[in-house]
Design a protein around this nucleic acid. Structure first.
Lengths: 251, 251
DNA sequence: CGATATGTTGAACATTCTCAAGGGATGTGG
DNA sequence: CCACATCCCTTGAGAATGTTCAACATATCG
């Protein structure tokens, strides 16, 4: 478990014109007049690392977009077993229009800033603004594909393949962000603890630790500290994922 | 693997007015004039049990709704490992608007009839008909929740819990169909082979067989033949799933 | 400095898989 | 009609993978 940190309530002000995620978020297709409507119901909030953004069962007063940082979407069983079901990165959508109660926990893995929209009026805008609902549908379908890809990882891959899959996904997304293709020597920070990685992969944290160090020992990756990874052999990493094609990952 | 059966090409004619899935399918919110548009691009096709409806990599010339029967959505790795990522029942949607190539296999588990729409014109209707795109979004979000629920099953449940989860989902859906609540003595057919169940649960077929017979031996269920299940102890079955609440399943 | 969170490593153990054999049920061709 | 093949399912025994429990290392923070 993570430590729980007191929420910061500092409201940030920002302008859609300089928003870092404006080309990929739910509002990406909105035009100036649409944005005016959205701005009326918009507020920003920043969460500290480890802070719970939403608890399962909470009333969902807002939905929104991750502006910066990394959050996790997860489910917990009575006895404490936990499964992460989504990794929320900048531009990803939080919350479910049409649902009043949260069915998943959302937790800030790093410091996270969210552009929040009041849920009820947002739902009305979904009906009113085709640009908004169109992008919403597109994003939902992409997430659905990503979830299904991940089901293969959870159901059929062994521990080593799971770790390789996670690393390749993080590396790929990092690459997208910096517009660099994935290549030997690519470096990035894993913004997750071993435990969070285990929760994503359906493993124990001990197994995660062992397999990461095995990949290091085999020269597929190298580590600086615990969280900073360099991909030594990119093709090898893709082979280790067990995937036939290396372009098929949807996340 | 299933035997492959020659496709039947009998086109069925049907009228939306008497369609068994009209209240839940993607067209559920459409009005008379919307349906006229849809009928122009509509055709029915029936597939034999075991027949492949779509292969990964196929050009997607159509999307559509399952009218009757059960189909599976799955992914296969090079070495033959397979993971089912969706169980398609009547009213479920097949295909992904906006995507030209299939990324999953779709296979008929029983005889399946699909109401198909030509993909390109359907995409145009999505833009034109808010009732259509609204329902599409709603269904996509429901499927996404279901996929995420299933990730917990795949990642964190043991074999016995997985079997109990599958049985409770099938029983629940069967109940919805006949408008009966799930109760002791409820009966239904599992329309999947042990192998298909294994592919859904991320297990081997031997483990599936053993766990089903263990649940039978423990008096949770009873069997008539291999596929017909009676739930002897409904509360016990829910406990065996490992779920805290028994109403939270989204599928 | 102690307290806490995070990460590593080892050894015993449990669960599930793999491989193998065999048992109905169904369908087909001789 | 019978022999045979095929599909689906069951059961057993040994092997493999990952978990559990425990100890310890390191870094950060008040």
């Amino acid at each position: 478990m993570y430590q729980t940190v007191k929420p910061k309530n500092d409201s940030v002000q920002s302008d859609c014109g300089v928003c870092p995620i404006k080309r990929r978020a739910v509002c990406a297709y909105c035009e100036a007049q649409d944005l005016v409507e959205l701005e009326k119901i918009k507020s920003y909030k920043t969460y500290a690392p480890g802070e719970m953004i939403i608890w399962t069962g909470d009333d969902m007063r807002f939905v929104g977009s991750i502006v910066s940082g990394v959050a996790s979407l997860s489910q917990t069983m009575e006895d404490g077993r936990r499964q992460m079901v989504g990794l929320l990165l900048p531009s990803d959508f939080v919350g479910r229009p049409g649902r009043a109660k949260a069915v998943f926990d959302v937790e800030a893995a790093t410091e996270v800033t969210i552009c929040r929209f009041d849920r009820k009026p947002f739902e009305q805008l979904l009906v009113k603004l085709p640009h908004l609902s169109g992008r919403m549908l597109e994003m939902s379908l992409d997430e659905l594909d990503a979830a299904r890809e991940w089901m293969l990882v959870l159901g059929r891959k062994n521990a080593r393949e799971k770790i390789a899959s996670l690393l390749s996904i993080i590396a790929r997304r990092e690459g997208e962000l910096h517009k660099k293709p994935l290549r030997d020597g690519a470096e990035f920070d894993i913004k997750l603890t071993r435990e969070a990685m285990a929760d994503y992969l359906g493993l124990t944290l001990e197994t995660v630790s062992r397999q990461i160090n095995a990949l290091k020992k085999d020269g597929v990756i190298s580590l600086q500290g615990k969280r900073h990874v360099k991909i030594c052999d990119c093709v090898r990493l893709m082979m280790e994922t067990g995937n036939d094609d290396d372009g098929g990952m949807v996340i």
